[in-house]
């Protein structure tokens, strides 16, 4: 196991450490960076890189062989599958990567080759769904079950549609409960409600990327409280293979966590501070949850102090 600390940015000097160890054992420093200087262990060889050059990829380039290089490579691979998912949507429905209802083959092929380099296009829910429906039927079925009547109950059916002349494709959704008065059979992604689009965006991201670490902001936005309860449970069901780091301002999301899962983020003296609950706070939280109230009530007191 290794830990990679990115410490302070002090007067333009980036500091990073890479340590190796395991729980309960002693941790040994492998690599230390101070500004543009990197000290490597064992051997204490020093190298220099640019002040803001990413440390680990630079080491792999400059020192491709060495006793710790295989570990560095594993850490880089792990960090490359850490993904932040922007849940924001463009203010105009006609903008953004999901504005088009129909997909041309050439656009799809371009998306396949470009998506790694263009995060905005890469996060297109429609393109990802199209790919899953064609190439990954198990994940497509899983998604349909998760959102269907035996799951979250928001989408009755997801249909992949193909037109031959001209050759176009698309994904249509039948919401649940079905708004019969609309007169429509099904809807394109951009026609769904904001909350439904948000849930689909989250679920498609989880199933498509299968990332090691998933960073999600405010999953509660536009999501009905009864659905939020179930959505958090879905995230939790995938937490054995992916770590979820979720930011939230919602008491309801807090109440679905356990005290040891909480990290409090504050701004002090112009610096962001992150901390877990202290041992005595955890003990107090367990007692409070057992006898008196909710975790959100408890945290309100902890943060207000």
């Amino acid at each position: 196991m290794s830990t990679h600390d990115v410490n302070e940015w002090s007067e333009g000097s980036l500091q990073e450490d890479l340590w190796e160890g395991s729980e309960g054992d002693e941790w040994n420093p492998l690599i230390r960076r101070n500004g543009n200087k990197i000290q490597l262990w064992p051997g204490h060889r020093g190298i220099q890189i640019g002040h803001i050059t990413p440390m680990l990829p630079a080491i792999l380039s400059l020192v491709p062989h060495g006793p710790s290089i295989s570990l560095v490579r594993k850490v880089v691979q792990f960090l490359q599958t850490v993904r932040y998912y922007p849940m924001d949507e463009p203010s105009e429905p006609e903008q953004g990567p999901d504005a088009n209802t129909l997909i041309e083959e050439q656009d799809y092929q371009r998306w396949l080759s470009d998506r790694a380099g263009t995060p905005e296009q890469g996060f297109s829910v429609v393109m990802r769904l199209w790919e899953i429906s064609k190439e990954r039927p198990d994940e497509f079925d899983e998604l349909k079950q998760l959102v269907g009547s035996d799951g979250l109950g928001i989408i009755e059916e997801i249909e992949s549609i193909v037109f031959s002349d001209p050759p176009l494709a698309g994904i249509k959704f039948r919401p649940s409960p079905f708004p019969a008065e609309s007169g429509k059979g099904s809807y394109w992604f951009k026609e769904l409600s904001h909350g439904t689009r948000r849930i689909l965006r989250i679920l498609v991201s989880i199933l498509y990327d299968q990332s090691t670490v998933i960073l999600l902001e405010q999953p509660e936005d536009s999501v009905h409280p009864a659905l939020l309860h179930k959505l958090i449970a879905v995230l939790r069901s995938h937490s054995d293979s992916s770590q979820f780091i979720v930011t939230s301002h919602s008491p309801m999301v807090f109440d679905l966590m356990s005290p040891d899962e909480i990290r409090l983020v504050t701004m002090q003296d112009g610096k962001t501070q992150v901390r877990s609950l202290a041992e005595e706070e955890l003990v107090a939280a367990e007692s409070f949850l057992r006898l008196e109230g909710s975790l959100s009530d408890f945290l309100e007191t902890v943060q207000g102090g």
Partner: peptide, 12 residues
């Protein structure tokens, strides 16, 4: 897949 999720599947 999907995995059993008590919040969703218990009532079902």
């Amino acid at each position: 897949r999907p995995r059993y999720i008590h919040a969703i599947h218990n009532p079902q």
